[in-house]
Design a protein around this nucleic acid. Sequence first.
RNA 1: GGCCUUAUGGUCAAGCGGUUAAGACGCAGCCCUCUCACGGCUGAAUCAGGGGUUCGAUUCCCCUUAAGGCUACCA
Length: 546
Amino acid sequence: MDNKKIADLIFPNLTLKPEDILVRYPKRQLKEGQVVTRFAPSPTGLMHIGNFFQAFISYNLAKNTDGILFLRIEDTDNKRELKEAKEVIYTILKRFNITFDEYQTLDGKDIGNYGPYVQSQRVEIYKAFAKRLVEEGKAFPCFCKKTEGKDDVLEQRKTKFAEDDEKEYDPCRDLSYEEVKCHIDNGESFAIRLKTKNSGSERIKFYDLIKGELEAKANAKDFVLLKSDGLPPYAFAHAIDDTLMGTTVAVRGEEYISSTPAHLELFEALGFEPIKYCHNPLICKLGENGNRRKISKRKDPEANMMYYFEQGYPIDSVLEYLLNMINSGFEIWRKNNPDKPWQEFKFGLSDITAVAPMFDLVKLNDISKNVIARMSGEELYKAWLDYAKEYDKPLAEILEKDSEKFIKLCKMDRENTPKPRKDIYNYAMMKENFDYIFSMPERFELDEQDKDKANEFLSEYLRTFKMPTSNEEWFENVKLLAGKLGYATDNKLYKNQPEKYKGNTAKVCEFIRVAITGRKSSPTLFTIMDILGETEVKARLAHNQP
RNA sequence: GGCCUUAUGGUCAAGCGGUUAAGACGCAGCCCUCUCACGGCUGAAUCAGGGGUUCGAUUCCCCUUAAGGCUACCA
């Protein structure tokens, strides 16, 4: 037959057969309910939050079913591949503790029995299946000029077909052996296309683990299986790899729903059992025009997973936020289980929201505040130090040199209290919020009209200053002195007759606070004094004298 | 244009035919208070529009509208 001859003509030296491949990939022995899934990123040089979202869903899915998660690098698009891109993916996944049962190491060693786990190392496999499809008349070589966009395609086809033809079949689909040979002898390059069996009127039903029953027009396109460079586009590689590697559930973005009918036809043509799909929503942002748009790596820094490291967000903050986005059941669970690690939360795929959620930095910050509030002082210190070591070396040196002071700062309002501070959502904020702990403040927020009163009070306060040992003792002493100097120590009295006093205790505390921290607001003053130590406190009080 | 998906407060969302339509973030006010933060309380704010089905629709069906996705030898 022509088909067999054509196949041998276009794949002259290919002896590998699908049967030989199939035996190398035995069916996985799985227990009931065990899921095999994968994360399959393209190495583009950065990890997009949308990709990471999928990795995270897959990870949880495998974890919750005691299943298997593998990593497959989809590097079949030569134009886009970057050398370090793979490394970026590995680094970020590792830092977020997304671990894989099977993958290829950076130096090219496959861990697991279903490799290679990098698509560019699997071209022989794709070719073997493509050849078989050609032999069976289910695919054909196409010598058309390469097109790179919708318009090109339409133009090319318009010249070949009648206007009213629904089916977008390809001009090369019925070439004879002689015609193919002629093209080949001319040295023309070719792609392999599927010869679709559909006419454009068929419907197809399929099931999505998140969205449920879905129905669509069946595929009626002779889409490309092997590009002229010999590498497969997504669809073909997906069908072959996920079958050989024993994937049971493919987690992928919503944008693939439309091409699912094509993938299903491909599975059938290859004689494969279809796998289950789980199309997760895309993450959006509020656009300038008020509409939602896909979160973009160019416009939105938070689309790049590196952003969260750079800002010093705890990884659990990001993960919990993602979990929260996937499924609001998490929020309720978290409320009922405030101290448990998020890993104990189990979600089902059907709980995943069907709508593209809007990325909300404010919400992330709120979650992060709670995550940090759950840390002990030591944990916070260590995390802050690690952050500084990576992004702020001078800071790291200071933190280490004066570790006792900064551990104290980290413990502030955090341990032994049912209501811990929740004012920090990333490590970068520590330095900003507590700049006055590092050195004498440079600016003082005191109001002009308070200056004389402040100086009067502060000089007396400094003269009689005794380093307090408890908050109560400290406050009693302040009140005592305030009363002596004509300030109200009872707020009710002050409110009734403010004209009788120079001010109230709050005012007096403001003087001290501004002298010590430069600001009108800070944590409780005793705590700050305790962190700074007697010498520094006295120095600051003195510094503030006229 | 065609096909697909989606539609509850500003945002994230519970809800599966009968509810005073949960909750969280944010916002406003009050309380606590040495100021922040925390915590407590209160408040404003939602079922896209129109038709059906039904004794009754936020919930089921249809249409419209809007948004998003796909429509490549990108994934």
